[in-house]
């Protein structure tokens, strides 16, 4: 059976990802926010990362995941 890949990063790589994408300072200043509830994003509450004109984040709050899934539908 052939395999399909799903891109993933580990929580430990999250900080590295932010540094590589010049977002680390914003993270330290707590300026990286969940696109839906506007709470600060950290490696412990990040649910997923996506691109929509810029890099955006969704936290693991159930309401936010619902909104994120609706966005994916469009």
């Amino acid at each position: 059976m052939e395999r399909k890949e799903v891109s993933a990063i580990l929580q430990d790589d999250f900080i590295e990802f932010l540094k590589q994408n010049n977002l680390y300072d914003s993270y330290m200043k707590k300026e990286l926010l969940c696109e839906y509830c506007q709470k600060p994003i950290s490696e412990y509450n990040v649910f997923t990362i996506y691109f929509d004109t810029k890099i955006k984040f969704c936290c693991d709050n159930e309401k936010c995941i619902e909104f994120f899934n609706k966005r994916k539908k469009k």
Partner: peptide, 15 residues
């Protein structure tokens, strides 16, 4: 990561 996200791929953050 950036090149993947530019293709509108959602990246799964696994713990």
């Amino acid at each position: 990561v950036i090149s993947y996200i530019e293709q509108n791929e959602v990246i799964v953050v696994l713990s």
